[in-house]
Design a binder for these strands. Structure first.
Lengths: 159, 159
DNA sequence: TTTATATATTTAGTTTTACGAAGTAAATTG
DNA sequence: CAATTTACTTCGTAAAACTAAATATATAAA
Protein backbone atom coordinates (compact mmCIF):
# COMPACT_ATOMS: atom_id res chain seq x y z
CA UNK A 1 0.00 0.00 0.00
CA UNK A 2 1.02 3.61 -0.58
CA UNK A 3 2.75 5.00 2.45
CA UNK A 4 0.61 8.13 2.32
CA UNK A 5 -2.51 5.99 2.31
CA UNK A 6 -1.17 4.15 5.27
CA UNK A 7 -0.69 7.42 7.09
CA UNK A 8 -4.21 8.54 6.26
CA UNK A 9 -5.67 5.32 7.55
CA UNK A 10 -3.81 5.74 10.80
CA UNK A 11 -4.98 9.30 11.07
CA UNK A 12 -8.56 8.25 10.61
CA UNK A 13 -8.05 5.64 13.31
CA UNK A 14 -6.64 8.22 15.68
CA UNK A 15 -9.51 10.57 15.09
CA UNK A 16 -11.97 7.76 15.53
CA UNK A 17 -10.51 6.73 18.85
CA UNK A 18 -10.45 10.23 20.26
CA UNK A 19 -13.98 10.68 19.09
CA UNK A 20 -15.11 7.62 20.98
CA UNK A 21 -13.21 8.69 24.05
CA UNK A 22 -14.96 12.01 24.03
CA UNK A 23 -18.27 10.22 23.85
CA UNK A 24 -17.25 8.21 26.87
CA UNK A 25 -16.46 11.36 28.82
CA UNK A 26 -19.67 12.84 27.60
CA UNK A 27 -21.59 9.92 29.07
CA UNK A 28 -19.74 9.98 32.35
CA UNK A 29 -20.21 13.70 32.88
CA UNK A 30 -23.76 13.82 31.64
CA UNK A 31 -22.80 16.50 29.14
CA UNK A 32 -23.53 16.38 25.46
CA UNK A 33 -20.59 16.51 23.13
CA UNK A 34 -20.88 20.17 22.16
CA UNK A 35 -21.40 21.08 25.80
CA UNK A 36 -18.25 19.18 26.61
CA UNK A 37 -16.35 21.08 23.95
CA UNK A 38 -17.47 24.35 25.49
CA UNK A 39 -16.52 23.25 28.98
CA UNK A 40 -13.10 22.03 27.91
CA UNK A 41 -12.41 25.25 26.09
CA UNK A 42 -13.52 27.26 29.09
CA UNK A 43 -11.30 25.27 31.36
CA UNK A 44 -8.33 26.24 29.23
CA UNK A 45 -9.07 29.81 28.30
CA UNK A 46 -11.66 31.33 30.57
CA UNK A 47 -12.65 34.02 30.92
CA UNK A 48 -13.53 34.26 27.27
CA UNK A 49 -16.26 36.04 25.35
CA UNK A 50 -19.09 34.25 23.63
CA UNK A 51 -17.77 35.24 20.24
CA UNK A 52 -14.24 34.05 20.87
CA UNK A 53 -15.62 30.82 22.22
CA UNK A 54 -17.69 30.31 19.10
CA UNK A 55 -14.67 30.93 16.92
CA UNK A 56 -12.58 28.54 18.97
CA UNK A 57 -14.92 25.61 18.48
CA UNK A 58 -16.04 26.61 14.99
CA UNK A 59 -19.71 27.13 15.68
CA UNK A 60 -21.92 30.16 15.16
CA UNK A 61 -22.58 32.53 18.01
CA UNK A 62 -26.24 31.63 17.94
CA UNK A 63 -25.45 28.00 18.54
CA UNK A 64 -23.03 28.75 21.34
CA UNK A 65 -25.53 31.05 22.98
CA UNK A 66 -28.05 28.24 23.21
CA UNK A 67 -25.47 25.80 24.54
CA UNK A 68 -24.47 28.37 27.16
CA UNK A 69 -28.12 28.86 28.10
CA UNK A 70 -28.33 25.24 29.13
CA UNK A 71 -25.00 25.15 30.89
CA UNK A 72 -25.94 28.30 32.78
CA UNK A 73 -29.27 26.84 33.78
CA UNK A 74 -27.37 23.93 35.28
CA UNK A 75 -25.04 26.35 37.08
CA UNK A 76 -21.93 25.08 35.31
CA UNK A 77 -20.98 28.40 33.75
CA UNK A 78 -21.60 32.06 34.53
CA UNK A 79 -22.12 35.03 32.23
CA UNK A 80 -20.88 38.46 33.08
CA UNK A 81 -21.57 41.53 31.02
CA UNK A 82 -18.35 43.39 30.23
CA UNK A 83 -17.63 46.56 32.17
CA UNK A 84 -15.19 48.16 29.82
CA UNK A 85 -17.06 47.11 26.72
CA UNK A 86 -20.67 46.42 27.54
CA UNK A 87 -21.33 44.53 24.32
CA UNK A 88 -19.12 41.70 25.44
CA UNK A 89 -20.21 38.89 27.68
CA UNK A 90 -17.53 37.07 29.60
CA UNK A 91 -18.03 33.40 30.29
CA UNK A 92 -16.55 31.58 33.26
CA UNK A 93 -16.76 28.14 34.74
CA UNK A 94 -18.52 28.13 38.08
CA UNK A 95 -16.98 26.20 40.92
CA UNK A 96 -19.44 23.45 40.22
CA UNK A 97 -18.46 23.42 36.57
CA UNK A 98 -14.80 23.27 37.40
CA UNK A 99 -15.39 20.36 39.75
CA UNK A 100 -17.21 18.46 37.05
CA UNK A 101 -14.34 18.98 34.64
CA UNK A 102 -11.76 18.09 37.24
CA UNK A 103 -13.57 14.96 38.20
CA UNK A 104 -14.07 13.00 35.05
CA UNK A 105 -12.24 14.32 32.09
CA UNK A 106 -8.71 13.58 31.24
CA UNK A 107 -8.63 9.83 31.39
CA UNK A 108 -7.66 9.66 27.77
CA UNK A 109 -4.88 12.12 28.20
CA UNK A 110 -3.62 10.44 31.34
CA UNK A 111 -3.33 7.15 29.57
CA UNK A 112 -1.70 8.78 26.63
CA UNK A 113 0.77 10.68 28.79
CA UNK A 114 1.70 7.67 30.84
CA UNK A 115 2.39 5.63 27.76
CA UNK A 116 4.19 8.49 26.16
CA UNK A 117 6.44 8.98 29.15
CA UNK A 118 7.36 5.33 28.98
CA UNK A 119 9.02 5.81 25.63
CA UNK A 120 12.66 6.57 25.11
CA UNK A 121 13.58 10.19 24.73
CA UNK A 122 14.47 9.84 21.12
CA UNK A 123 11.15 8.15 20.41
CA UNK A 124 9.29 10.96 22.07
CA UNK A 125 11.07 13.48 19.92
CA UNK A 126 10.33 11.43 16.87
CA UNK A 127 6.62 11.36 17.62
CA UNK A 128 6.44 15.08 18.25
CA UNK A 129 8.34 15.83 15.08
CA UNK A 130 6.08 13.55 13.10
CA UNK A 131 2.95 15.12 14.52
CA UNK A 132 4.29 18.52 13.58
CA UNK A 133 4.75 17.28 10.07
CA UNK A 134 1.27 15.89 9.90
CA UNK A 135 -0.31 19.01 11.34
CA UNK A 136 1.45 21.01 8.71
CA UNK A 137 0.60 18.69 5.85
CA UNK A 138 -3.06 18.76 6.76
CA UNK A 139 -3.28 22.47 6.99
CA UNK A 140 -4.86 23.16 3.64
CA UNK A 141 -5.08 26.86 4.32
CA UNK A 142 -1.43 27.40 3.66
CA UNK A 143 -1.21 25.02 0.79
CA UNK A 144 -0.06 27.33 -1.96
CA UNK A 145 2.83 28.72 -0.01
CA UNK A 146 3.99 25.31 0.99
CA UNK A 147 7.10 23.52 0.15
CA UNK A 148 7.65 20.85 2.74
CA UNK A 149 9.41 22.43 5.65
CA UNK A 150 12.32 21.21 7.65
CA UNK A 151 11.31 20.03 11.02
CA UNK A 152 12.78 22.85 13.04
CA UNK A 153 10.82 25.51 11.23
CA UNK A 154 7.37 24.50 12.22
CA UNK A 155 6.92 26.36 15.43
CA UNK A 156 5.73 29.59 13.88
CA UNK A 157 3.08 30.45 16.39
CA UNK A 158 -0.22 28.84 15.32
CA UNK A 159 -3.46 30.56 16.29
CA UNK B 1 6.83 22.17 28.24
CA UNK B 2 6.29 18.45 28.81
CA UNK B 3 6.86 16.56 25.62
CA UNK B 4 3.66 14.60 26.14
CA UNK B 5 1.75 17.86 26.48
CA UNK B 6 3.34 19.06 23.31
CA UNK B 7 2.15 15.92 21.57
CA UNK B 8 -1.37 16.35 22.88
CA UNK B 9 -1.52 19.93 21.69
CA UNK B 10 -0.44 18.85 18.24
CA UNK B 11 -3.02 16.11 18.22
CA UNK B 12 -5.73 18.54 19.12
CA UNK B 13 -4.54 20.77 16.32
CA UNK B 14 -4.67 17.92 13.86
CA UNK B 15 -8.15 16.96 14.90
CA UNK B 16 -9.27 20.55 14.73
CA UNK B 17 -7.97 20.97 11.20
CA UNK B 18 -9.59 17.80 9.92
CA UNK B 19 -12.79 18.82 11.62
CA UNK B 20 -12.81 22.12 9.79
CA UNK B 21 -11.99 20.43 6.53
CA UNK B 22 -14.94 18.14 6.97
CA UNK B 23 -17.15 21.13 7.54
CA UNK B 24 -15.87 22.56 4.30
CA UNK B 25 -16.77 19.40 2.42
CA UNK B 26 -20.07 19.39 4.18
CA UNK B 27 -20.79 22.87 2.85
CA UNK B 28 -19.69 22.06 -0.66
CA UNK B 29 -21.77 18.89 -0.90
CA UNK B 30 -24.81 20.29 0.86
CA UNK B 31 -24.70 17.41 3.30
CA UNK B 32 -24.67 17.80 7.05
CA UNK B 33 -21.71 16.39 8.89
CA UNK B 34 -23.36 13.19 10.11
CA UNK B 35 -24.80 12.65 6.65
CA UNK B 36 -21.32 13.03 5.26
CA UNK B 37 -19.99 10.45 7.68
CA UNK B 38 -22.62 8.01 6.55
CA UNK B 39 -21.90 8.64 2.90
CA UNK B 40 -18.15 8.28 3.33
CA UNK B 41 -18.59 5.04 5.22
CA UNK B 42 -20.93 3.74 2.56
CA UNK B 43 -18.48 4.61 -0.13
CA UNK B 44 -15.89 2.46 1.53
CA UNK B 45 -17.89 -0.47 2.79
CA UNK B 46 -21.23 -0.73 1.05
CA UNK B 47 -23.32 -2.74 1.04
CA UNK B 48 -23.58 -2.61 4.79
CA UNK B 49 -26.44 -3.11 7.23
CA UNK B 50 -27.93 -0.29 9.27
CA UNK B 51 -26.57 -1.79 12.48
CA UNK B 52 -23.04 -2.19 11.20
CA UNK B 53 -23.13 1.32 9.87
CA UNK B 54 -24.23 2.63 13.25
CA UNK B 55 -21.43 0.78 14.96
CA UNK B 56 -18.92 2.07 12.45
CA UNK B 57 -19.69 5.71 13.11
CA UNK B 58 -20.52 5.25 16.80
CA UNK B 59 -24.13 6.35 16.70
CA UNK B 60 -27.28 4.56 17.77
CA UNK B 61 -29.33 2.70 15.21
CA UNK B 62 -32.23 5.04 15.77
CA UNK B 63 -30.10 8.01 14.86
CA UNK B 64 -28.72 6.35 11.77
CA UNK B 65 -32.19 5.35 10.67
CA UNK B 66 -33.31 8.96 10.67
CA UNK B 67 -30.21 10.07 8.82
CA UNK B 68 -30.83 7.37 6.24
CA UNK B 69 -34.44 8.48 5.92
CA UNK B 70 -33.25 11.87 4.76
CA UNK B 71 -30.56 10.55 2.46
CA UNK B 72 -33.05 8.13 0.93
CA UNK B 73 -35.58 10.87 0.38
CA UNK B 74 -32.88 12.72 -1.57
CA UNK B 75 -32.14 9.54 -3.55
CA UNK B 76 -28.54 9.34 -2.38
CA UNK B 77 -28.84 5.91 -0.79
CA UNK B 78 -31.07 2.88 -1.24
CA UNK B 79 -32.40 0.40 1.29
CA UNK B 80 -32.89 -3.22 0.48
CA UNK B 81 -34.48 -5.74 2.82
CA UNK B 82 -32.27 -8.81 3.20
CA UNK B 83 -33.30 -11.98 1.38
CA UNK B 84 -31.41 -14.50 3.43
CA UNK B 85 -32.10 -12.77 6.72
CA UNK B 86 -35.14 -10.58 6.41
CA UNK B 87 -34.37 -8.62 9.56
CA UNK B 88 -31.42 -7.02 7.93
CA UNK B 89 -31.58 -3.97 5.71
CA UNK B 90 -28.73 -3.44 3.30
CA UNK B 91 -27.74 0.09 2.47
CA UNK B 92 -26.16 1.16 -0.79
CA UNK B 93 -25.13 4.36 -2.44
CA UNK B 94 -27.25 5.19 -5.44
CA UNK B 95 -25.53 6.29 -8.61
CA UNK B 96 -26.44 9.82 -7.71
CA UNK B 97 -24.95 9.39 -4.26
CA UNK B 98 -21.75 7.98 -5.66
CA UNK B 99 -21.45 10.89 -8.05
CA UNK B 100 -21.81 13.35 -5.23
CA UNK B 101 -19.06 11.64 -3.29
CA UNK B 102 -16.82 11.41 -6.31
CA UNK B 103 -17.24 15.06 -7.09
CA UNK B 104 -16.27 16.93 -4.00
CA UNK B 105 -14.46 15.01 -1.40
CA UNK B 106 -10.79 14.31 -1.24
CA UNK B 107 -9.18 17.69 -1.49
CA UNK B 108 -7.76 17.37 1.99
CA UNK B 109 -6.31 13.97 1.29
CA UNK B 110 -4.88 15.05 -2.02
CA UNK B 111 -3.01 17.88 -0.40
CA UNK B 112 -1.85 15.65 2.36
CA UNK B 113 -0.67 12.99 -0.06
CA UNK B 114 1.15 15.42 -2.25
CA UNK B 115 3.04 16.84 0.65
CA UNK B 116 3.65 13.43 2.09
CA UNK B 117 5.10 12.19 -1.16
CA UNK B 118 7.43 15.16 -1.14
CA UNK B 119 9.20 13.84 1.91
CA UNK B 120 12.20 11.60 1.94
CA UNK B 121 11.56 7.90 2.26
CA UNK B 122 12.96 7.70 5.74
CA UNK B 123 10.83 10.61 6.84
CA UNK B 124 7.75 8.94 5.50
CA UNK B 125 8.58 5.84 7.45
CA UNK B 126 9.15 7.91 10.52
CA UNK B 127 5.77 9.56 10.27
CA UNK B 128 3.96 6.28 9.77
CA UNK B 129 5.80 4.71 12.68
CA UNK B 130 4.96 7.65 14.89
CA UNK B 131 1.31 7.57 13.94
CA UNK B 132 1.21 3.91 14.80
CA UNK B 133 2.60 4.74 18.18
CA UNK B 134 0.07 7.45 18.76
CA UNK B 135 -2.81 5.29 17.64
CA UNK B 136 -1.72 2.69 20.13
CA UNK B 137 -1.17 5.11 22.96
CA UNK B 138 -4.61 6.56 22.49
CA UNK B 139 -6.36 3.26 22.32
CA UNK B 140 -7.79 3.01 25.82
CA UNK B 141 -9.61 -0.18 24.91
CA UNK B 142 -6.46 -2.21 25.12
CA UNK B 143 -5.29 -0.52 28.22
CA UNK B 144 -5.38 -3.66 30.33
CA UNK B 145 -2.99 -5.38 28.00
CA UNK B 146 -0.71 -2.39 28.11
CA UNK B 147 2.48 -2.88 30.08
CA UNK B 148 2.69 0.84 30.48
CA UNK B 149 0.05 0.86 33.14
CA UNK B 150 0.61 -0.82 36.44
CA UNK B 151 -2.62 0.38 37.80
CA UNK B 152 -5.93 -1.37 37.34
CA UNK B 153 -7.71 1.66 38.61
CA UNK B 154 -9.02 2.95 35.38
CA UNK B 155 -11.86 0.53 35.40
CA UNK B 156 -14.12 2.32 32.98
CA UNK B 157 -16.44 -0.73 33.10
CA UNK B 158 -19.25 0.38 30.81
CA UNK B 159 -21.10 -1.82 28.36
C1' DT C 1 -44.94 -27.32 17.87
C1' DT C 2 -45.00 -23.90 21.08
C1' DT C 3 -42.67 -20.75 23.95
C1' DA C 4 -39.00 -18.01 25.02
C1' DT C 5 -35.13 -15.31 23.89
C1' DA C 6 -32.19 -12.81 20.93
C1' DT C 7 -31.37 -9.87 16.83
C1' DA C 8 -32.30 -6.05 13.38
C1' DT C 9 -34.59 -2.26 12.43
C1' DT C 10 -38.08 1.23 12.87
C1' DT C 11 -41.34 4.43 15.30
C1' DA C 12 -42.40 7.76 18.87
C1' DG C 13 -41.32 11.39 21.81
C1' DT C 14 -38.07 14.65 23.75
C1' DT C 15 -33.99 17.39 24.12
C1' DT C 16 -30.17 19.40 21.98
C1' DT C 17 -27.55 21.23 17.91
C1' DA C 18 -27.06 24.15 14.16
C1' DC C 19 -27.80 27.82 11.24
C1' DG C 20 -29.52 32.11 9.02
C1' DA C 21 -32.08 36.20 9.67
C1' DA C 22 -33.65 39.72 12.32
C1' DG C 23 -33.41 42.41 16.62
C1' DT C 24 -31.04 45.10 20.42
C1' DA C 25 -27.62 47.57 22.44
C1' DA C 26 -23.09 49.45 22.71
C1' DA C 27 -18.89 51.07 20.37
C1' DT C 28 -16.52 53.30 16.52
C1' DT C 29 -15.97 56.08 12.38
C1' DG C 30 -16.41 59.91 9.43
C1' DC D 1 -24.19 63.45 15.58
C1' DA D 2 -25.51 60.10 11.93
C1' DA D 3 -23.98 55.90 9.98
C1' DT D 4 -21.79 51.79 10.47
C1' DT D 5 -19.77 48.08 12.80
C1' DT D 6 -19.48 44.89 16.54
C1' DA D 7 -21.22 41.57 20.15
C1' DC D 8 -24.86 39.03 21.56
C1' DT D 9 -29.52 37.33 21.79
C1' DT D 10 -33.99 35.86 19.94
C1' DC D 11 -36.72 33.39 16.68
C1' DG D 12 -37.99 29.95 13.52
C1' DT D 13 -36.79 25.68 11.42
C1' DA D 14 -34.38 21.53 10.23
C1' DA D 15 -31.52 18.05 11.63
C1' DA D 16 -29.44 15.06 15.03
C1' DA D 17 -29.23 12.25 19.10
C1' DC D 18 -30.90 9.56 22.63
C1' DT D 19 -34.14 6.27 25.26
C1' DA D 20 -38.01 3.45 25.24
C1' DA D 21 -41.27 0.90 22.96
C1' DA D 22 -43.02 -1.54 18.79
C1' DT D 23 -42.49 -4.82 14.96
C1' DA D 24 -40.77 -8.55 12.60
C1' DT D 25 -37.63 -12.24 11.91
C1' DA D 26 -34.40 -15.84 13.61
C1' DT D 27 -32.73 -19.14 16.86
C1' DA D 28 -32.98 -22.07 21.02
C1' DA D 29 -35.43 -24.69 24.51
C1' DA D 30 -39.31 -27.27 26.20
Amino acid sequence: MEKSQEALVLLRQIIRVTDMQEKEISRSTGLTLPQLMVMQTLRQMSPITTGELAKEISLTQATVTSILDRLEKRCLVSRERGVEDKRKVWINLTEQGLDLMKGAPTTQQDIFSRRFDDMQQWEQSMVVAALERVAFMLDAQHLDAAPVLGIGQLDRGMN
